[in-house]
Amino acid sequence: MDFISIFSIFILACFVGYFVVWSVTPALHTPLMSVTNAISSVIIVGALIASAAAGSATSKWLGLAAVVMASINIFGGFAVTSRMLAMYKKKER
């Protein structure tokens, strides 16, 4: 993809992010942070590419280290978000 198409997606996504985040209820701002934490670890895609590539051993090990770090975040982030969300209960009537 050329730079301009990628850049367009990026700018549009910023607008989507702006509106979606303002619609998040303030009561859920902490889960918002932990879940954004988890999804920003989509950087694991880059780490997987580096780990799978032949050619540079250093690059491969850096990739594997990044896979471990991103995985901690992904599993930890989604798990802690889910744990928090499970605590939000409505009044029993």
Partner: peptide, 20 residues
């Protein structure tokens, strides 16, 4: 961890740009 993973991926891409 996200920050350090980003650094590691960028460094890996720098060392092996063809793979990327």
């Amino acid at each position: 961890l996200v920050g350090l993973a980003a650094v590691a991926v960028a460094a890996a891409a720098y060392l092996n740009p063809l793979a990327f």
